[in-house]
Computed example of a mutant assay.
Amino acid sequence: MSDKSAISQAEGVMQRMLARDAFSKLLGLQVDEMGEGYCRLHFQVREDMLNGFGILHGGVTYSAADSAFAFACNSHGCLSVALSTNMDYLEAGKLGDTLTIEAKEESLKNKVGVYQIRIMNQENVLVALFKGTSYRTSKNI
């Protein structure tokens, strides 16, 4: 598959997923770039995303990273699901921050893919790291 058709396929899969993904829409996720095994998106931290201490709720950060992971691992057109994920929180997100989430495929074998996701704020400060391992089913998207 050519690079151009792979990007087109990845974008098509993302659009199909996003059309049915009410939670990603609720978070206000905006996809900036898609490719095979790759997704970059961003969102702005709103007041309704803050926890009781006035900082970004960890579940919001996790959910945004999980969405980027899902878009990246499904970008090949094969239905993929998470086998395992983990998240390290390094800095607190704050009201008004614009967070950019970048998911990159590190390894893809027959059935298992490994993805590294970085969450950065508008000052290029690393806010969190997310690692996801996916299982590729035999179903096409």
Rank of each mutant, 00 (worst) to 15 (best):
A92L: 04
L41K: 02
T100K: 06
L95Y: 11
K111E: 05
I141S: 04
A64P: 09
L27W: 11
G96Q: 07
G28L: 08
V31P: 07
N140I: 10
G54K: 04
E105S: 12
L108K: 15
Y62P: 00
L108P: 00
Y115N: 02
G59S: 07
G28M: 07
N140K: 14
L129M: 09
I7M: 00
I55T: 15
E123D: 12
R40D: 07
K131P: 02
A92D: 06
K94T: 06
G28T: 11
L129Q: 10
A92F: 04
L129I: 13
V112S: 08
M34K: 08
E106R: 09
T100N: 04
Y62V: 03
S80W: 04
N51E: 01
F71V: 12
Y89P: 02
K25R: 12
G96F: 05
R118Y: 08
K111I: 05
V127S: 01
G96P: 05
M87H: 04
I7S: 00
H76M: 06
A6P: 01
S75M: 06
L29C: 15
L41S: 12
G37S: 06
F53P: 00
L56D: 03
R136G: 09
H42R: 14
V81H: 05
D97W: 03
E123S: 10
I101S: 09
L95P: 01
S138I: 05
A68L: 11
G96E: 07
G113T: 06
G54N: 08
S138T: 11
A10Q: 04
C78V: 15
L41H: 05
Q44H: 10
E11F: 00
G28N: 11
G52Y: 01
S67Y: 10
C78K: 14
N124S: 10
V114W: 01
F71D: 06
Q30M: 09
E123N: 13
M49C: 05
G28H: 11
Y115Q: 04
T85D: 07
S84Y: 02
R20I: 01
Y115E: 03
E91P: 02
C73P: 03
T137A: 11
L18V: 12
N124H: 10
